[in-house]
Nucleic acid binder design. Structure first.
Lengths: 96, 96
DNA sequence: AGCATACGTAAGTTACTACTTACGGTAAGT
DNA sequence: ACTTACCGTAAGTAGTAACTTACGTATGCT
């Protein structure tokens, strides 16, 4: 899941979808890579559960999958909770 | 920053640090890679601002950098806020 | 001073992955 | 039915990055 967001181009695509559903062509327009490349990135994002797609005539709309995004957020929230706790422990030991 | 967490081995290291500071050798013990490999990963994490280090005799302790972790969490929090808003908009249009 | 421990760095190799072009397939328009 | 638009997939390539071994360095102990 984080592997999918480890690529800069894929993050750009993902961020573009933040403002709403987009077609593959639209996504490819704002990027310095070819349309097939965008398709491949979208597949990775889809397999990671971060986006979903639906037909719209000849086009194909991609949108952010809320469940996937929530899972990522929860992952880091858990990290944050635990790390913050350790951080406070350390601070408490220092100050006495 | 997310590039740094895009690697599975690096995520393992980062997760190991969740429970507190660890030396390079300790981190390498629980991983299927060599100790120098761990050092290289730690450098990437450090340059990303996700960990910090300090001397401890001949050893070197690495710990999670709260600021970096907070930045990652905020990034996804912003994503979540905006995506959730779009999601509600879409739901409102559907249901009427 | 000499040795051991713990670690970072350099150099080189291998594997992966992001990319391109070419092709095939589906839906809408005329 | 033919054409056009839009997209996914296949195949091949180039660049990168993760890894190993070998080596150099700093700290602590005797």
């Amino acid at each position: 899941m984080l592997d999918a967001l480890g690529d800069a181009t894929r993050r750009s695509i993902f961020e573009s979808l933040k403002s709403g559903p987009r077609s593959v062509g639209e996504l490819a327009e704002g990027l310095p890579v070819s349309r097939p490349a965008v398709s491949q990135h979208l597949r990775v994002l889809k397999e990671a559960g971060l986006v979903s797609d639906s037909r719209d005539g000849t086009r194909r709309l991609y949108r952010i999958e809320p469940d996937g995004l929530l899972r990522v957020r929860d992952y880091f929230d858990g990290f944050w909770s635990e790390a913050l706790e350790r951080f406070r422990e350390a601070a408490r030991k220092e100050t006495g």
